[in-house]
């Protein structure tokens, strides 16, 4: 399992990484591996404000559809449109080209409550 040491995580397998004033989010390597080939991503509208833990979209693999959860509260500033043409980037490069959304955090302190890379690694390994 690959881990991005600079990111923080939710137990539902989303990662969050600070990029200037925004947070970038995607799904972890453990998640893409267990979902299998990703074939579709449903994104939220840009400008939408969502609370931590709310679903921001759906990721569909060959096997199943899974909800995606906001790692922190925030307002969506961008979605990865490039995945519309080829969602396999989520499988190939989940921490890079396979990012899902960017958002402006509305409660920045929530960052401290997310799992560190090493804690997530232990959590994911146990499941």
């Amino acid at each position: 399992m690959k881990i991005d040491a600079n990111a923080r995580y939710r137990t539902s397998h989303e990662w969050a990484r600070k990029e200037g004033s925004v947070i970038v989010t995607g799904i972890s390597d453990h998640a893409q591996e267990s979902l299998g080939d990703i074939v579709f991503v449903e994104f939220p509208e840009v400008g939408k404000t969502l609370k931590q833990g709310q679903t921001f979209g759906v990721i569909e693999s060959v096997k199943a559809a899974s909800d995606l959860y906001m790692p922190m509260s925030g307002t969506i500033t961008a979605v990865n449109e490039a995945l519309g043409g080829d969602p396999s980037a989520v499988n190939k490069d989940c921490y890079g080209a396979g990012w899902l959304i960017k958002f402006e955090p509305t409660s920045p302190a929530e960052w401290d409550g997310l799992l560190s890379a090493s804690d997530y690694e232990k959590e994911a390994a146990a499941h």
Partner: peptide
């Protein structure tokens, strides 16, 4: 096997 390590789309 639902898929082999190759992955369903590539298979």
């Amino acid at each position: 096997p639902i898929t082999y390590p190759t992955g369903a789309v590539e298979e």
